[in-house]
Design a binder for these strands. Structure first.
Lengths: 265, 265
DNA sequence: GCATGTACGGTACGCCATACGGAGTTGCTT
DNA sequence: AAGCAACTCCGTATGGCGTACCGTACATGC
């Protein structure tokens, strides 16, 4: 647990932190903290006030220790963020692909990720940058998602891309949805207020003559919905696209359709 | 152009900045700078060294002015980022849906966005947070994307969701692709180095027995591809899903095809 | 019992965005 | 022509941040 110089971005150290390998020292004073306590304090802060409010000082204060004491347990803030991410990912339960069928299993993953982002809005700011850190939960999730599309006649590359497609979609939608109500309008003014206040200006700037389609859609009230109102809609289409691929890879099936007694619905 | 107190997030001021409405003053000394020069300097810095290197000091230095002079033209850094975003979005040309057909037009949009993110990797960090600022280019793009799916028998809400689906997918994929080679591994160590250095540890941590599917896909070399290798693949599936929807919304077409003299296309 | 390696954390450095206010400049008003 | 209001430019200062450095206190192994 010794503080290492680390210069910049040390993979070994970061992985050891994520997987909690690395023996504790025998020599010095007893440790008053744990990585877990630090991570959970950090998560609480981020949940409550956003990533912007998450500072090493704030974490230390919440734990009643000096700021620099954190660095005994964690090499730096970047690594703390990685562990936070991997930790909350553990909240998602991993569906059993074999029992559910690929479509339902993928759907469950999508919903779980979406819901996770509601509970911890800051994850969307993290699963952009370098989440490929392969912590234990990330790894377990990768295994689970890939397993949903295994044994469907896809190549390994196609499997990875199909999973990547669903992930990309979910992240893309969730991002706007979450960022809008969060620190999007960085501080001050809520989403509603901001929108209400800018509408008169927008109505002057965005002339129906120049933007007919946009104003038509606008007039239909579409943009007054929650920003992720289309989540289910888009997910269905994505899965439809995947389904078409899978069918095309198993051309024999529809022909031999009469064989099993029940092809449910 | 007077500096306003602005407290926090002023919609009117921000919109005026984006649309360049707002008369210039008659009274004081001639202005030595323009919003455009500031924005372009900022874009150059972000292109070269990433958003992390973009500070008000850096912009001012590049322009050879004092830091605080920038605040005469721009209310703050957040607003500068908004204008930067809207500005680079103008690099994308907007395909003509009527001439190309919806699928090709949507494809062009997707490719344009993807390519934009290669040229300006920092945009992916911005099109999460509150880009709904409705600057001129953002608005023009919204009109263009919606127009691609107009007149296809979809409701307004469906139109918005279809566009949202493609956008979400493109952003999701592009994000990982870009963030990986960029400041993902925040500073120091390139992507290749980092991966090479962590592989031995990962091979010890990720046992094939526990993660059979992942290791199988891994062994197939899928993860050695560029992180957005699946871009075209996923896009095709997304468009397939949309195509199925559109077909289902025009059930009458094949049946009643003979009625009007020319149902174009 | 002493050396060693560790935990803790105060202080300090160099960044950052930006509030404030003064000095100099311009053009309108009288 | 004079005065003043509005404006630009920007030096200084404030309060934040991550974290390097290092002194002090402590627990163990020898």
């Amino acid at each position: 647990m010794a503080r290492e110089k680390s210069g910049r971005a040390n993979p070994a150290r970061t992985l050891a932190l994520l997987w909690r390998t690395g023996e504790e020292p025998t020599r010095g004073p007893k440790q008053g903290l744990t990585v877990d306590r630090i991570v959970h304090a950090a998560i609480e802060i981020a949940d409550a006030d956003g990533l912007g409010a998450l500072s090493m000082r704030a974490v230390a204060e919440r734990l009643g220790v000096g700021t620099m004491s954190l660095y005994t347990y964690v090499p730096g803030k970047a690594e703390l963020l990685h562990v936070m991410f991997d930790t909350v990912l553990g909240e998602n339960e991993l569906p059993d692909a074999a029992g559910l069928g690929w479509r339902t299993a993928l759907e469950r993953h999508a919903h779980a990720d979406h819901a996770l982002a509601q509970r911890h809005p800051w994850v969307v700011q993290l699963w952009g940058p370098g989440l490929l850190l392969m912590g234990p939960r990330i790894t377990a999730r990768a295994e689970s998602t890939l397993r949903t599309v295994a044994h469907l006649g896809l190549t390994e590359t196609e499997m990875a891309h199909v999973v990547g497609l669903v992930d990309a979609y979910v992240r893309g939608v969730t991002q706007v949805a979450v960022d809008v109500n969060r620190d999007a309008v960085s501080s001050g003014v809520g989403y509603e207020d901001w929108w209400a206040e800018s509408t008169p200006y927008l109505e002057r700037l965005i002339q129906p003559a120049h933007f007919p389609t946009l104003t038509r859609v606008w007039a239909a009230g579409t943009y007054e919905e929650a920003p992720d109102a289309g989540f289910e809609f888009g997910l269905r289409l994505v899965l439809d696209g995947i389904e078409a691929l899978i069918r095309s890879r198993r051309p024999a099936e529809p022909i031999a359709a009469a064989e099993p007694p029940a092809t449910q619905e």
